[in-house]
Each structure stands twice: as C-alpha cells, then as structure tokens.
Design a protein around this nucleic acid. Sequence first.
DNA 1: ATGGGCGTTCCAGCAACTGGAAGGTCAAGC
DNA 2: GCTTGACCTTCCAGTTGCTGGAACGCCCAT
Lengths: 133, 133
Amino acid sequence: MNIGDVATLSGLPAKTIRYYEDIGLVRPPRGPNGYRRFRESDLHKLNFLGRARSLGFSIEECRGLLALYEDEGRASADVKRIARDHLREIDRKIDELAEMRRTLGELVEACSGDHRPNCPILTDLARMPKPRC
Amino acid sequence: MNIGDVATLSGLPAKTIRYYEDIGLVRPPRGPNGYRRFRESDLHKLNFLGRARSLGFSIEECRGLLALYEDEGRASADVKRIARDHLREIDRKIDELAEMRRTLGELVEACSGDHRPNCPILTDLARMPKPRC
DNA sequence: ATGGGCGTTCCAGCAACTGGAAGGTCAAGC
DNA sequence: GCTTGACCTTCCAGTTGCTGGAACGCCCAT
C-alpha cells in the first residue's frame, strides 16, 4: 500500500503519516522507486495512533502505548497506568475549562451588549491580579 | 518601573512581557540606558493581558479586547461578541474532553491492570476508525 | 574594582503538525 | 511514444505562546 491508501484507510493525512515516520512511530519499508510501502501491520499501528491521539494521548504517550501494544509479554497494569494518568490530566483540563466557563459566563450575562462603552467584561479583565497565594 | 517590577506586580514573567512587546501588545518607552520604562498604563495593560489569557483568550483575541479596552467610544456589544465566541469555543473543548473522559474512563474501568497482557484499552485503540461520516 | 543582580539582545526549542516549493514516478489516454 | 495529471519524494518554513540560554551591558554596594 502507498501512503495515500493508508491515509484513506486510517483517516490520517499523508503529511501526518510522514511525520510519524520521521519521529520513529512507524517504519514502513521502501519500494525500489523510493515510495513507502506500508504493510498491514503498519496500517494497524496508524489506526492505533489515530485513535490514541483522538483520545488526547500525547505523542510520547502514544509511543509508550504502541510499544506495549507490540509487546506480547506486557502487563496490562502498565497500560492502565498510562491511561489513568492521562485520565487525571483530562479531568484537570476539564476543571480548568469549567472554571473559565463559569467566570466568563457570568461576565457575558452581565454585559448589556449594546452601543454603550460600559462593559463588566472589560472591568473584570482590568482587575489587579491577586498577589500569588 | 523596570521590567522586574511590572513582572512582580502583574504576575507575568519578564520574558513574557518582552514577548508581548515584541508582538506589539505593549509599547513601553525606553530610558537613556536602554531599559524599558513601564508606566502605570502599561502595567494596567499587562494585568489585563494576564487576566484575559488566564480566561483562555488567544493572543489575537487579547489584542482585540485590549483595543476595545482603550477605545472610549467602544460598543460593549463588540466586547460581548468576542467573549461569547470564546465561550462557545470553551464549551466545544469541554464537550470534546468530556467525550474523551467518558470513553477512557470506561476502558480504564474494564482493564484488570495486572501482570497479564490482555487489555481492553489496547483492544479499543487498535480498532479500525469509523469511515468518515 | 569587583561582585551580584538587574537589564538587554538574539537564537533555539517545545508539540504536533501543516503548507508549499521543487522535483521524481506511474498509469491512462491519444 | 508522449503528454497529462495524480500520485509520490524531500526539505524548509510557519503555526501558538511562550521558555531557556548565551553573551553582553548597567548599576549599586562594598
């Protein structure tokens, strides 16, 4: 399979697949014309990467997961630890965004949104920062 | 005030403040020794930027908000529109993260996390992608 | 005059791609 | 057999928002 084929099948852009090769996540052999020739196993890895990335795992986490995926002697505990750490990170981000959402939601509510200059959003933004706790 | 002073007062690193000058968000004048001399108004802008960034506004959104902040003839509707757009973006991100959290949470629950190689997390990751809808 | 603690500039790098230029290859149609 | 167009290749630059470091200048106290 050429890169275009695996791009279609995996849903990843060809550019991204080349990038993944660059950083050593996949290593497709080359044909005599210099084209990358992807095997089924390469396609599996690309699917794996696409899915892992879509769940928010970083490239380095993906590298670790991929190594475990390929390691028949792995312990599922190792996989679970990576996933649980990532889950905590997701929770942290959700909390952070929820806090922004709360604050900003209040401000938007309070703003009349008319032709006049007076605006509680700007008033809030111009606040002094709390001296660090 | 020197950069160290406004860094302390605004809570922003000096590096960041120099960067903000680089991209034209603040324009402190220079003293005869070449040092940046920050006025009260510069400090206000830096506070504004720090707060806006902490609410997740992009640099370009901050530039727009700052322009409105400085424009006595602004319409609060313009401010509100920027804020509302950003709010929608936050909601989108929260939804995205929540969906990740849901999926990953289930997988982590389902994984025994022991010394055996069998792992539902890896099984899920290795899934074929849905052909694009 | 010397030391430390400021300040300055510029250059490089992070993540994870994405775009574009310049060129090589392949299969189909005439 | 030649052209056309779709594919493939590499490499370089840019994105966002900083952050680190090198190498240097300035200022104040001892």
